[in-house]
């Protein structure tokens, strides 16, 4: 009986957590303009989401979101990996301080990061738009990449870099042929995390997108909601985003499990 209630509690909790997204998912398959009104099964909303026409600006927002995420994730993966190698080779106090400095941006509320970047761009006289959003996203994603790459470096046998040099590799060759293959799993998880964080971001984007009409998904939805009433196409869109994020999460988890297994074997 006790077991039954424990199970019941768990399922109730999960149901409450996932009910909203499930409802959106269900109602993305009907044509009704008003959410909560079932007018029969239809994939019309999906079709009109991608055919655009009337929703040209929504499609633009999707494109912006994806391209910004891709650029920001790539750049922060490169920067973060280099930074992690640098921090890893530091000693003593300096290392502790830099590690702390790397952690602070992650704990800092997004809104503060957004405002401070906004002030920075204004004070430097940079006109805000696509570039500033990309720069801002690189800034807040990089620490997460460092955090993902660092454990791989710590697990690495410290002699393998020297072994590569010993066998005739230049320091650059050793980095390319030995260090990077070793930290690649960390770089990939870092990239995926940066990508999802960038897609997810609202506060930082809002403050750095300027007023030239640049919209990402999150700012578009926000603006749309303020105009009163959500565009029905947002329902299939949310469903797709949820499905993509879920997929990425599953991939990250499977990779983490596989790595743990491999380390055990070593």
């Amino acid at each position: 009986m006790k077991r039954f209630f424990a199970q019941l509690y768990l399922w109730l909790l999960l149901a409450m957590l996932y009910a909203p997204i499930v409802i959106i998912g269900i109602f993305s398959f009907t044509e009704s303009k008003v959410l909560g009104n079932w007018t029969g099964f239809s994939t019309e909303l999906y079709t009109s989401l991608f055919n655009g026409g009337a929703h040209h600006s929504l499609l633009d927002a999707i494109k912006n979101t994806l391209s910004i995420a891709l650029i920001a994730a790539t750049a922060s993966t490169i920067l973060g990996s280099i930074a992690a190698i640098g921090i890893f080779n530091m000693r003593g106090r300096k290392k502790q301080v830099i590690n702390l400095l790397n952690d602070i941006p992650m704990l800092n509320p997004d809104i503060i990061t957004g405002i401070s970047l906004f002030l920075l761009f204004v004070s430097l006289g940079i006109s805000q738009g696509y570039t500033t959003v990309v720069l801002a996203h690189i800034a807040f994603c990089t620490p997460y990449v460092v955090l993902n790459v660092m454990p791989r470096l710590q697990q690495m046998n410290p002699n393998i870099y020297e072994a590569a040099l010993d066998l005739g590799a230049t320091p650059m060759q050793a980095l390319r042929k030995v260090i990077i293959p070793e930290i690649r799993p960390g770089m990939i998880s870092g990239f995926i995390l940066a990508f999802t964080l960038s897609i997810d971001d609202f506060a930082v984007t809002l403050f750095t997108k300027g007023n030239e009409g640049l919209e990402t998904l999150s700012t578009y939805i926000y603006a749309d909601a303020r105009k009163g009433g959500l565009t029905p196409e947002l329902r299939p869109l949310s469903t797709i985003i949820f499905a993509v994020v879920l997929l990425l999460l599953i991939i990250i988890n499977i990779r983490a499990k596989r790595n743990a297994k491999r380390n055990q074997a070593m």
Partner: peptide, 20 residues
């Protein structure tokens, strides 16, 4: 002379094989 140009090779205590 940097290590990669020295005509000697090393066997390390903890093997230091390239795991990948």
């Amino acid at each position: 002379i940097p290590p990669h140009k020295r005509p000697l090779n090393t066997v390390f205590q903890r093997y230091a094989l390239f795991p990948h």
